[in-house]
Structures are given as C-alpha cells and as structure tokens.
Design a protein around this nucleic acid. Sequence first.
DNA 1: ACCTGAACACCGTTCAAGT
DNA 2: ACCTGAACACCGTTCAAGT
Lengths: 204, 204
Amino acid sequence: MSAERIVDVALEMVDHDGVDGLTMRGVAAKLGVAVTAIYWHVGDKEALLDAVADRVAAEVGGIRVTGADPVTRIVSLGRSLRRNLLERAHLVAIAHQQGRTAAVFQPARRVLVRELTAAGLRGADAAFSVQAVLALVSGSVLTQVQVERAPESRDKPEELWTIGDVAAAPDLLEFLADPIDPEQLFTRSLDTLVRGLVASRPGP
Amino acid sequence: MSAERIVDVALEMVDHDGVDGLTMRGVAAKLGVAVTAIYWHVGDKEALLDAVADRVAAEVGGIRVTGADPVTRIVSLGRSLRRNLLERAHLVAIAHQQGRTAAVFQPARRVLVRELTAAGLRGADAAFSVQAVLALVSGSVLTQVQVERAPESRDKPEELWTIGDVAAAPDLLEFLADPIDPEQLFTRSLDTLVRGLVASRPGP
DNA sequence: ACCTGAACACCGTTCAAGT
DNA sequence: ACCTGAACACCGTTCAAGT
C-alpha cells in the first residue's frame, strides 16, 4: 500500500468509467483494503482527484509534428494534440476539472512557440497565437468530451431545421441537415485560423 | 404541485449552485413536500435533468448584432452570444451535459446563417462557417465554465514557464507570463477566423 | 390521481481502537 | 506508522400504503 498505488487504480477507474466511476469505496475494494486506509495515505476525495489530475498532466498531452511549411506543421501539431487528448477523454476532463488544463498543454505549448517563431511571428503576436491555437484545441476537445458522455444525444439536427424561416437560406439546408464531422470541422477551422495568424506578421 | 414548479426550483438550484447543488431531496425540501412526490411528477433524476436542460435550451442563447460591415456584425454576434452564455454558465453546462447544446445555439445559428449569406458565403462554405463560428463560441464558453468551477486554479503560469528551454524564445517570456484575458483571446480569434472565412468566398 | 413513510443500497468522512 | 470497524450524515430509488 502506498499513495502511488492508490493513484494508480484511481486513474484506471477514471480512465475506464469517467469521474463518476471513481468512488473511495471502489478504490479501496480494488486494493483489498478498508476504505479508511485511503484517507491515511492521500487524504479526502478532493486530494485524490488532485493527485490523479497531477498524474494526468504528466502523462497526457504528447504531440507529433509533421510537414514542411509552417502552416502545415502547426496544423499537424494541433491535430496530433487533439487526437491524443480525445484518446483519454475522461482523464482530460478530470485534469480540466481540477484546474490543471494549462499543465496538460505545457508540452504542446513549448513546441508551438518554436513553430510559430519559425513561421515568423514575434512578441505579442506570437504569444497570442499560442493561446489562440491551444484554445481551439481545448474547446474542440471539451465540446466533444461531454458529447461522448451522453452517447444518445437528444438533439436531432433535422428537427432543429424544420422549424422557422428556413426559406431564408434554402440552398444551405442540404449542408446543414447532416452534422459535420468534428475532426473535419476542427482541422479546417484551425487551418483558417493559422493562415490568418501567420498572414498578420510583418512582411520580410 | 406540478412538474413545472419542480423544474422551476430545480433550475434555480442549478443556476445558483451548479449541477452538484441539485439533489432530489433538496428540491423536495424547497417545495415543502416529500421526496417521493418528485418521482411521481417528473420521474427520476435523469428525467429531471432533461427537463431542466429543455428549459435552458428555450430560455438561454439570445444574441444581439451590431455593426455595419459583415465581419464586424458576425464578430459582435459571437461576442454577444458568448457573454449571454457565460452569464448563466451553470445552466449552459447542464444543457451541454444533457446533449442539448445544439438547441441552445439554435437562435444564434439562424441569425448567423443570415449574416454569413449577407457576407457572400454560399453552400458548403456557408454551412461550414456556421459550425466553425459556433464551435469557437462553444469551446470558449466550456473552457471558461469549468475554470470558474475551480476558482482557485492550481496552475501558475509563471511556474509553467520557469522550467525548460525558455531560452528558445526569450522575447516571448514577458508576454506568456501573464495570462491573456479570455474575452480578448476569444474576440481576436473570432476576428481572425471570420476574416479568413469571408476571404475564402469567390470574388465579386 | 396524488402524496407519504419506511426501507434499501450506496455514498464520503470521522474517530476511536487496534497492531 | 499504518490499518480496521463502527458510526454518522447524506445520497437516489422503490414500493406498499394511505387519501
């Protein structure tokens, strides 16, 4: 028995069943120990959640960068990060909940600074661009995380468009009816954003 | 006693204390009634959450549009929507959790279609632009909602930058040290995105 | 039709007691 | 130092029973 082992199984439970799947009694049972032993090693549930979040911040958030030109490389970085985070959506959710989002993004932030500098951005523009790209990734992941939590979404896009003044834009109906793939939406948004950011730099 | 009154106080409790502040027993106590009466009128807690989310979708998500040129108008729409949603962050969170996000965004979506059409976008480009703008708003709101939930964030931006190869971009340190105002970040990102979207339309 | 009371299984947490 | 057992206050939910 050690704090480390406790966090091990806690992280495992969160990864598998989400935050709601983590109970003090469940952790104790999985370790074959009395519930109260947990309290001695890691403190109460809030402390356990913090410990799990710390571990997530250390283990999640890896990226890969490919491509030749700056825009392609930055977009590939964003896509890689997003994919990585979505693979462990439950863990990302708990890190975010415990206020460790910035730590999760730290490895990506460092690489991103390098790539944006290589793209010619400097000073305040570069700093803003870092935040903007990471915010887009964060937003995309968080939006999708909670959607996955409720697998049978009650929203029917078709219904949403049958009511109201659709006559205002009839040529859009066919496109708005079927929902866009989240990954495509993210990639194209990121591409548009990054082009705009890079274009704002002073000319050579 | 009626399902409507029950949803009234449930929504009030969520708005005030968040999702965790809502308990069946709490609702019953506030109505001066036995817990089990709730079950007769609205069913179990999941059903109550759904009912609250439906109400949120109907009452939240208003927008205002100002400005003359298309980009200004669309950015103002996004800012207005974001502000509106953040004012009732707890309610937005529950609507999202129950899979009613699309419904919350429906009023804004309709206006956005009009504005993007006025900006010259058509067909698939317009449809994508709608989703991209709304996704940016959604992401910004969700990111900030959970941050508010944990008021004392454990992440210290300064600490995050003291470790590692900061020498790679020393001129950025002063800008990356102090966190960017979320509203400024959102506004500038949205502006950049919208300019890119509008610029992608075929010339006149 | 509408509401109550008792009961059940499950939480997180504390605390005295053991070794 | 480390772990247990009993106990407490709080959940959501069911079900028989009342009117």
